[in-house]
């Protein structure tokens, strides 16, 4: 076992693990909205499976974050009782589901990111994160198979479906910039060998996305400068509604056990 970090290092690790956990949590929450409303019965099951994996990842990561913080907060205190600005997911995850095509585009972009990230994090110097990454990478590899297969069907399906997913891609693309915008925290995690360099993740992600878009006969949108910093707690308007819904019972009945 590596010694538990303390002080500033622990504070950094805590925030970094929240970034990972919140990304899975918020995306899982979004996918949960689909269950019972998917385009085909079999897709209800498919989307639910992905949601279950993501909620499972969030539980592991938030539990770990709570232990690093060492203030007695567990997965549920962290998931349900934080303020808006204390969530550190990239804002792409909180974007509304829209139609199935938009959900699939969002999913491909994040699945590919998580896959490249977790593959590299399986050798993290932080044993706990390495173990979580090793488990999650198997799930995420399937998620990307599911989402990218669908993106290819929709992109190379009918003219109407192609137009829909191309529009969704244009709309969501600007949010991807944030995933790779390396800040002080990302740099320090990479320096300590806890996480990979985001530039490495980006290069691999970009190649993977290009191949998927080519198969789907979709055009890669132009990069635009980003204005989003969900990783620092600056969110789009959508997160507030997600939290209002998600936190409803915990906020209404403080201290109750469920």
């Amino acid at each position: 076992m590596s010694a538990a970090p303390s002080g500033a290092a622990a504070q950094d690790l805590f925030r970094f693990v929240l970034r990972l956990g919140d990304l899975s949590l918020v995306l899982g929450q979004r996918l949960g909205e689909w269950v019972g409303h998917a385009p085909a019965l079999e897709e209800d099951l498919g989307l639910a499976n992905v949601a279950l994996d993501l909620i499972g990842q969030a539980r592991l990561l938030l539990t770990y974050a709570g232990e690093i913080e060492a203030k007695g907060r567990g997965e549920d205190e962290l998931a349900f009782l934080r303020e808006h600005g204390d969530y550190f997911n990239a804002v792409l995850a909180e974007q509304p589901n829209g139609d199935f095509g938009r959900t699939i585009v969002r999913q491909v972009l994040i699945d590919a990111f998580q896959l490249e990230l977790y593959e590299r994090m399986a050798t993290s110097t932080d044993e706990r994160l390495a173990a979580i990454a090793a488990k999650s990478v198997k799930e995420v590899r399937y998620h990307l198979r599911y989402s990218s297969d669908w993106l290819v069907r929709l992109g190379d399906g009918t003219e109407a479906s192609n137009a829909r997913v191309q529009a969704a891609l244009e709309a969501l693309w600007p949010y991807t910039v944030e995933l790779f915008a390396e800040d002080e925290l990302d740099r320090s995690m990479a320096d300590r060998g806890v996480a990979p360099r985001l530039s490495d993740v980006q290069a691999a992600w970009s190649a993977r996305i290009d191949a998927i878009l080519a198969a789907a006969t979709l055009q890669r949108p132009k990069d635009r400068p980003h204005a989003w910093h969900g990783k620092r707690g600056q969110h789009s308007e959508h997160l507030g509604y997600i939290l209002a819904e998600m936190q409803h019972l915990q906020r209404t009945y403080p201290g109750a056990r469920w």
Partner: peptide, 19 residues
Amino acid sequence: WITRAPTLKRKAILIAKVQ
């Protein structure tokens, strides 16, 4: 109630159940 389940464990159970 999936989006409003009070804990992550209950959320996972409910998703699995509805699924």
